[in-house]
């Protein structure tokens, strides 16, 4: 797993939608931490903007969005 990418995703989540405690692990559940649909919309836009990927509705699903590593995996699949 690309640690660098996970770190970038973490920064985006932390800065644009949901402040994460230092103890938050890349496999911890973001929804459990309080991610809700309002934040999710902002997160998707931020990921597209910062990481130059296009996320489509088919990419959604809790398996992709519930953890930082899940998001990173999705982003790396989508990267050109």
């Amino acid at each position: 797993m690309d640690e660098e990418l996970i770190r970038k995703v973490r920064d985006i989540v932390h800065e644009s939608v949901l402040p994460l405690p230092d103890s938050f692990h890349s496999d911890d559940d973001l929804f459990h931490e309080g991610l809700e649909s309002m934040a999710l919309m902002q997160l998707i836009l931020a990921l597209e903007r910062e990481l130059h990927v296009t996320i489509s509705p088919e990419d959604l699903g809790r398996e992709n969005f519930s953890t930082l590593s899940g998001i990173a995996r999705l982003v790396s699949r989508k990267s050109p």
Binding site: S37, M38, M41, Q42, I44, P57, G61
Partner: peptide
């Protein structure tokens, strides 16, 4: 799953100028 789809659709429609920005965050 449908709720996630809605979240993305609304976000993208706002960005495309098809929906008012005030709708970002409808839950």
């Amino acid at each position: 799953r449908f709720l996630l789809t809605l979240a993305v659709d609304i976000a993208k429609s706002v960005r495309a100028g098809l929906l008012s920005p005030g709708l970002l965050g409808a839950t």
